[in-house]
Simulated scan of single mutants.
Amino acid sequence: MSNPTSSSAPNPLLQLENQLCFPLYALSRMVTKAYQPLLQELDLTYPQYLVFLLLWEHQELTVKELGEKLLLDSGTLTPLLKRLERKQWISRRRDPRDERSVIIGLLPAGQALQVQACKVPEQIFAQLNLTPTEFETLRSQLNTLLTQLA
């Protein structure tokens, strides 16, 4: 049985502390976890909240457009959207111009949820303890990386 020698240093490229992926992964999980109690008050999951952010902004989008903006496939979105439809927060209808396309729109209860949701970003911003400039710089850098990889 051979023993590793003390002179063989690990490759620094393979050390966890030198990876970009781990802090991004861990941070993503922690930020999502910070959202959970706030979204539970609204009876929303984090992915459902993301859908609502887009619908509150655009009023209606196709499933394809939602998927493109959220980087999610229709197999992930469809069950999520069906749950929101059962709660009578959104409507799903075929696009009369293209029967293959499904349009997602807000129902009054889904629109009303926006009032309650306004406190979520403020509370998250406070938890992050960043200055507005730091927040904007970080968001910009993350969006740049996301665009480069998408």
Rank of each mutant, 00 (worst) to 15 (best):
P4F: 11
L149F: 13
P79D: 03
L53I: 07
P79G: 05
F22H: 10
T137V: 14
E65Y: 06
Q148E: 15
T147K: 15
T62I: 07
V51D: 00
Y25G: 05
S7I: 11
Q127H: 10
K119G: 01
Q123T: 05
T131D: 05
L149G: 03
N11E: 01
Q116Y: 09
Q148N: 15
Y35W: 01
Q59P: 00
L77Q: 04
L54V: 08
L128D: 03
R29Y: 07
Q114D: 09
R100I: 00
L113Y: 01
F52W: 04
P121L: 06
E57V: 01
S8R: 11
R29V: 06
I104L: 08
S28F: 14
A117R: 05
S6R: 11
L44K: 06
E65F: 07
A9S: 12
E134N: 07
N129G: 13
T76E: 14
V51K: 03
R29K: 13
A112Y: 06
L54G: 08
C118K: 12
L38F: 09
T137N: 09
L142P: 04
T78N: 11
R97M: 11
V102A: 05
A126P: 00
Y25S: 12
Q111H: 13
P4Y: 04
A150H: 13
S74C: 00
L13M: 10
P121D: 08
R86A: 08
R86E: 12
E68M: 02
L71H: 14
Q19A: 09
L77W: 11
T5W: 02
L77P: 02
L130E: 10
T133E: 15
A150S: 15
A117E: 03
S28C: 14
L130Y: 09
S91Q: 13
E85W: 04
D98E: 09
F22G: 00
N143S: 12
I103E: 06
C118A: 12
L77S: 06
Q36E: 15
E57C: 09
P37Y: 02
S101T: 14
A126S: 07
L145V: 08
S140V: 02
K87V: 01
L13T: 03
P37I: 03
L16D: 05
L20N: 12
D43V: 08
P12N: 06
K33S: 12
K69D: 02
P121A: 06
R93C: 05
K87H: 13
T147W: 13
Q114V: 00
V120A: 06
Y49G: 01
L42R: 01
M30V: 05
L50A: 09
L72K: 14
Q148H: 14
R86I: 03
I90L: 14
L55E: 01
E17K: 10
L54Y: 07
P132S: 06
T137A: 09
T76C: 10
L44H: 03
R97I: 03
L149E: 10
L77F: 04
N3L: 15
P47R: 02
D43N: 11
A9Y: 08
E122R: 10
L24Q: 14
P96G: 05
P10Y: 02
L106V: 07
L72F: 05
P23Y: 13
G105R: 09
D98F: 10
S8Q: 15
P23S: 08
R83T: 11
L142K: 09
N18S: 08
Q59K: 15
C21D: 13
L80K: 06
